[in-house]
Write a protein that binds this DNA or RNA. Structure first.
Length: 488
RNA sequence: CGGGGAGUGGCGCAGUCCGGUAGCGCAUUCGCUUUGGGAGCGAAGGGUCGCAGGUUCAAAUCCUGUCUCCCCGACCA
């Protein structure tokens, strides 16, 4: 077999790129830092969207759409927010081109009176609308999500993990009370955790970001953090409690039941196409992509094997009712009946593309009433009777989904350690993985650790790990261990 | 944006040092044989060598600029 994918242990970054190329998920675009999402990659994203969207609806949210362009003045209304995003905004300054010899150039006559910002996130334009929508406590809560693209002018990009334009969803909610807003923030983090673990089979740690890692404009940022195969952490989703920062910046008040005018409490939360990068680096191997059945564009591929037209007809007519039966069990199946590729070629291609399960049917199977099942995750092959194939495959897909999660969970647990001293920390961090250690809570210590070890605090875990101790660096008091890792 | 590497038919590369008019493998097209792990043989098509200038009788090769990608830093979902 021609080796088209670099081995993970040789060059992890190159492996990542190779997997994306071979799985036909995305291409680099002619524009720096952007990507073309190919049909297979987009089908995966659509499945992720569908799963998340249902979970948003189930928790009472509605979808809406706000503009791509934001008046420059809006960005300057919330001080922290401006500071966080100012350095990475695409700015629209002109509205016209004019033809010149050999091409076009910007028409200097068309300079805009007020420049527009291509949204890096939509808090500002959404809160401008919310001001008009909210007068009374009766108008609350507002629970809105939007699916959109955003642009952040990044210096260094990687397919899916960090692109200048990316697709995401951003939820923006408005509440009458602080408690309700915090509850919403927690609820959406839980939605993300559930999605990551149950759909993506990607286990995550949850917690609160430190001040330096917090979303610009948030009071608190909650996050899910996953651990990639190379031992680096990936921030996979964030849910922000925004306090009254945006309400004050955009003057959004409501009259409460007590007659008082009060500022509204807010949240925002998002996940992006970065999740695809996380999915790749959680499960895939040196043969290519491995997809969990719940998100795979199709769960089963059927590859017919035949010699001559007569066998072809026999094999296809044997396969068709099998496919129907699978579909009747809610399984998504693709019959790969292309005549211009040989079975071996198809095997390799579907392997690279991550299809969870392959069924091969040939004359031998037709004769004996069998089929050959091959699992993508374990590469295990079995000959099984075609009878009762529906329930069998349904079970097997569930097993694959569970096995993927369990092995990723085991990998994460095995590479999560607790250390006491800074020396020990420096040594252990070289091996990657998550490390729980005591920290004195200051930005100075956090920065020092980052400079000396390249590790950052991924999150301050929720109360379950409360345990007083001493900061590994300064020896000062610490209330609980926090989670460190080197990250993407 | 700093340091390093790279851009040559669709893909992967050689040729660049030492200038002489572009080659290999895979893929593609056609024909025959094939089909249970990326098929074999034969024939054919396809590249102004990332782009823009410059030097030269002559540039993939030398010089200048610029764009893109990869790796390492600073920044970040």
């Amino acid at each position: 077999m021609a080796k088209r994918i670099t081995n993970r242990n040789e060059d992890y970054s190159q492996w990542y790129i190779d997997v994306i190329k071979e799985a036909k998920l995305a291409d680099h675009s002619p524009v720096r830092g952007c990507m073309v999402i190919r049909p297979h990659g987009f089908a995966l994203w659509e499945n992720m969207k569908a799963g998340l969207d249902q979970m948003f609806k189930d928790t009472g949210h509605e979808n809406a759409y706000f503009p791509l362009f934001i008046p420059k003045s809006f960005l300057s209304k919330e001080a922290q927010h401006v500071e966080g995003f100012a350095k990475e905004c695409a700015v629209i300054t002109h509205s016209k081109l004019k033809s010149v010899e050999g091409g076009v150039e910007v028409d200097p006559e068309s300079r805009l009176d007020e420049e527009l910002i291509v949204r890096p996130t939509s808090e500002t334009i959404i809160w401008d609308s919310y001001r008009n929508w909210i007068q009374s406590y009766r108008d609350l809560p507002i629970l809105i999500n939007q699916w959109a693209n955003v642009v952040r002018w990044e210096m260094r990009t990687r397919l899916f993990l960090r692109t200048m334009e990316f697709l995401w969803q951003e939820g923006h909610t408005a509440h009458a009370t602080k408690e309700e807003a915090i509850e919403e923030t927690e609820q959406m983090l839980e939605v993300y955790r559930t999605f990551a673990e149950e759909f993506m089979a990607m286990p995550v740690k949850t917690g609160v970001k430190t001040a330096s890692e917090r979303f610009a404009g948030a009071v608190d940022t909650y996050c899910i953090e996953a651990l990639m195969q190379d031992g680096k952490a990936l921030q996979a989703g964030t849910s922000h409690f925004l306090g009254q920062n945006f309400a004050k910046a955009f003057d959004v008040k409501f009259q409460d039941t007590d007659g008082e005018h009060k500022y509204v409490w807010a949240t925002s939360w998002g996940v992006s196409t970065r999740l695809i990068g996380g999915l790749i680096m959680t499960h895939s191997d040196d043969n290519g992509l491995i997809l969990p059945p719940k998100l795979a564009p199709y769960q089963v591929v059927v590859v017919p094997i035949y010699r001559g037209e007569e066998q072809r007809e026999a094999v296809i007519s044997y396969a068709e009712p099998i496919i129907k039966e699978l579909e009747s069990h809610g399984i998504t199946v693709k019959l790969d009946n292309r005549d211009n590729y040989k079975p071996g070629w198809k095997f390799a291609e579907h392997e690279a593309q991550g299809t969870p399960l392959r069924i091969a049917v040939g004359p031998r199977d037709v004769e004996k009433g069998n089929l050959e099942l091959a699992r993508r995750d374990t590469l295990e092959k079995n000959i099984v009777p075609a009878d009762g194939i529906g329930p069998r495959i349904k079970d097997l897909l569930d097993t694959i989904q569970a096995d993927l999660f369990n092995s990723a969970k085991k990998r994460m647990d095995d590479s999560t350690r607790t250390v006491e001293t800074y020396d020990q920390f420096k040594k252990e961090i070289e091996d990657g993985g998550f490390i729980y250690a005591h920290w004195d809570g200051t930005a100075e210590t956090e920065e020092k650790i980052k400079e000396e070890t390249k590790a950052t605090i991924r999150c301050i875990p929720f109360k379950e790990t409360a345990e007083p101790g001493k900061c590994m660096v300064t020896g000062n008091k610490s209330e609980r261990r926090v989670l460190f890792a080197r990250s993407y």
